[in-house]
Design a protein around this nucleic acid. Structure first.
Length: 421
RNA sequence: GGAGAGAUGGCUGAGUGGUCGAAAGCGGGUGAUUCGAAAUCACCUGUGGGUUUAUGCCCACCGAGGGUUCGAAUCCCUCUCUCUCCGCCA
């Protein structure tokens, strides 16, 4: 959530910044400003009335002790009651309205974010690794997986519908190996391993920014009013909801493996085939809760920690800085890591590393006490240590052999106990 | 699922209708004492909001939401959560 004080003090800055996202929000900001003005007027009037009531009540207490009749005073206060109740009502309505508007406004962008309309305007930062060369006709991962009996899409869709899959035998084991491998690297890098709830309340999703705006992306269990998490980021960030940390607690580095559940409502027709886009996929996530003064240094570290996984797996990738039009709702700045997918002859997103600054911290109310004793909002960052399913795809395709086998990356051999699957 | 108990400031814990934002202790901070330290003593020490050039003043908050009352931490109702016992269960 954007700081309303900033909107109040510098509305043009906010408008110009949000305009870079290529969505129209100017009028919305003006609405907020007007309502905010109205809100403060009402607060003033309401508090004056309450002060009057309080002092008169106090007087009654004193007079009664002295045995003096207070009926007249009591009548006076009764007359205030309606006005107070009415104002309280109006104020509550306005505050709710402002809150609703504010919760639907995306984060401000960092000055270093390149301007652009969509993903085509993202800026490549670096490339790593050599693209594999094949002296045979390659297969895409789903063809290879089905052929080898390692993936079953048909039975999965029979029981669950489209965009589900069953991994079998050594491929299932490879998925598990990847999860363990990533968690091992992350904990070695100083991230604390967490096991977190997969079902969360709406408040948690408001905290991280998925709600109220992206309801249609989420699986919702009506009877219990719980949502399935679309990413472990939700649970990890909310593990610190409504807390005041010590400055010495920062930075907090967390990692967790969870499945992620997404309805993919807006992506009909995209990536229909294969494991690339599923309603349920495994992901190992990284979250940092950091001091606001060095969150951009922390973002670089986070990116390197995610890159390290691909380097160890020896998978070629590139890093792009997302442009203003492609950055997610909660982020101020985002790097995507894209891994090479031979069958598509292009790089595909496998990790997304973002600094949300204090956007989530405000929503989830996560603060720390600074040296002067003041409570300040932390900055939160998140990144996929890697989307495990897509990593699996990348391994299957980049490491495939002529005889339809898959070479196990060296770092996974201890986990797999086998050289080929 | 059944029965009971509880939820108060960073923590422990008092407070059952009026000057209580809340005793006391612990913890934390500042100062005095000391060559220095410990101990001791004094003072300070919750959050959010409104207003103000500022000191300040005001409002709200004692799990959440309603209600009674001139006035609620205190009385009433609903909900949530925690603990204990019983049952069930991976």
């Amino acid at each position: 959530m954007i700081n309303i004080e900033l909107i109040r003090k510098n509305p043009d800055f906010v408008k110009e910044n949000l305009a870079k996202r290529d969505i129209f929000l100017k009028d919305r900001i003006d609405d907020i400003l007007k309502l905010d003005e109205e809100r403060r007027q009402k607060i003033k009037r309401l508090e004056d009335l309450r002060a009057l009531r309080n002092s008169k009540s106090k007087e009654i207490g004193i007079l009664k002790k002295q045995g003096i009749d207070t009926e007249e005073l009591e009548e006076e206060i009764k007359n205030l009651k309606n006005d107070i109740a009415e104002l309280e009502d109006e104020l509550r309505r306005i505050e709710k309205y402002i809150e609703d508007l504010l919760l639907r406004i995306p984060n401000l962008l960092h000055e270093s974010v390149p301007y652009g309309k969509d993903e085509n305007d993202n800026v490549e930062i670096k490339r790593w690794g050599e693209l594999p060369k094949f002296d045979f006709e390659i297969k895409d991962h789903s063809e290879l997986g089905v052929l080898r009996g390692l993936i079953d899409f048909d039975q999965a869709s029979a029981m669950s519908g489209s965009r589900f899959s069953i991994l079998k035998g050594p491929l299932a084991k490879l998925e598990r190996a990847l999860i363990n491998f990533m968690l091992d690297v992350n904990t070695k890098n100083g991230y604390k391993e967490m096991i977190v709830p997969h079902l969360v309340k709406g408040e948690a999703l408001i905290g991280t920014g998925q709600l109220p705006k992206f309801q249609e992306e989420l699986y919702y269990i009506k009877d219990d009013e719980l949502y399935l998490i679309p990413t472990a980021e939700v649970s990890l960030v909310n593990a610190y909801r409504d807390t005041i940390l010590q400055e010495s607690d920062l930075p907090i580095n967390l990692t967790a493996y969870t499945p992620c559940y997404r309805r993919e409502a807006g992506s009909h027709g995209k990536d229909i085939k294969g494991l690339i886009r599923q309603h349920q996929f495994d992901k190992v996530e990284l979250v940092k809760i950091v001091h606001p003064d060095n969150s951009y240094e922390e973002l670089e570290k986070l990116l390197l920690n995610a890159e390290e996984i691909l380097q160890l797996l020896e998978l070629p990738y590139r890093v792009v800085a997302l442009c203003s039009g492609d950055i997610g709702f909660s982020a101020s700045k985002t790097y995507d890591i894209e891994v090479w997918i031979p069958s598509q002859n292009k790089y595909r997103e496998i990790s997304s590393c973002s600094n949300c600054e204090d956007f989530q911290a405000r929503r989830a109310n996560i603060r720390f006490k600074d040296k002067t004793g003041k409570n300040r909002f932390v900055h939160t960052l998140n990144g996929s240590s890697l989307a495990v399913g897509r990593t699996l795809v990348a391994i299957m395709e980049n490491y495939q052999t002529k005889d339809n086998k898959i070479l196990v990356p060296k770092v996974l051999r201890d986990y797999m106990k086998e050289e080929y699957i």
